[in-house]
Amino acid sequence: MLLPRIIPCLDVRHGRVVKGVRFLDLKDSGDPVELAAYYAASGADEVVWLDIVATVEELELATDLIAQARRRVDIPMTIGGGIRSLRQVEALLEAGADKVSINTYAIQNPQVIGQVAARWGSQCMVVAVDARREGDHFQVYTHGGRQRTDWELGAWLKAAESEGAGEFLLTSMDRDGTQAGYDLPMLRFARGLVHRPVIASGGAGSIDDLAEALRDGQDALLLASILHQGTLTIPAIKAELAQRGLPVRWPL
C-alpha cells in the first residue's frame, strides 16, 4: 500500500536556512545542505527546499547548494521559490532537483505548467497554491500571500491540472504559522476535486494534528515550524504515528 509522506520544508535565503533548527546536533544547522542530509537520514520521505532564485546570483547560489545536497540526499527533493522562467527550471533540475514548485509565476502565466510538463514530465511539475477562506469559498493568493487573485481555489486547481500539473502543494494561509492544525475542510475540498497528489501545508503544530490529517485521508504532510522549534524530530513523529497504528515508513 502507498504510505503517507512526511515532508520537512527548508526555508533558505541567500544560502542559509532561515527559521533554522537550533537544537539539532549538526555541525552547522544553518547550512541547508547539512540540514537536508540530516532530514533524509532521519526518515523524511521527501524534502521541499524553498529558496529565492529570482536573480542570476541567487539561482547560481541555489544550484550550487542543490548539487552539493544531491550527493548526500537519497530521497526526492522539490525546489521552489521565485521561479520565473524555463531556464531557471532547467538549471534547478540539472543541479539535481527531482521536482520544481511554482506558485506566482504559474498564475501569471499558466502555460508554463504545460511547458514544464511537456519537456520534463508532469511528475516534476508541482503547482504551489496559497489560499484562504473568504465566506463560503477559498480564494487564491500570490506573492507569498500578499496579493489576492481573481481565482477561486477549485477553479484554479482544475485549470492547473488540465495544464499539466503533476502534484499540488496547498498551503492554508489561515493556518500557516498558527500551529492550530491543518485546514482539513480546504484539503478535503481540494483532494475531492483533482486527480493528482496533494501535499497538505500550513498549521501542523503537534503529532495529534498529523494523525488527524492522516485519518482524514491526507497522504502527504508538509512540516515547517513544528520541526524548526526543535521540540519534535522526524524519528519521534514517525515512531509515535506508527505506535498509534498509522501506516508510515518507519523503521526505514
Binding site: M1, L3, D45, P197
Partner: peptide, 27 residues
C-alpha cells in the same frame, strides 16, 4: 483515480537474492 502513483510503497517479492536484507515492509 489519482496519478501519478507517487510516494513510498512496498513490494511483494518472490524469493530471490535481489531482495537479501529486505522485508515485505521495506518501502
Amino acid at each position: 483515480n489519482r496519478v501519478p502513483h507517487m510516494g513510498w510503497n512496498t513490494v511483494r517479492f518472490r524469493a530471490h537474492p535481489l531482495f537479501k536484507g529486505l522485508t515485505p515492509s521495506s518501502a
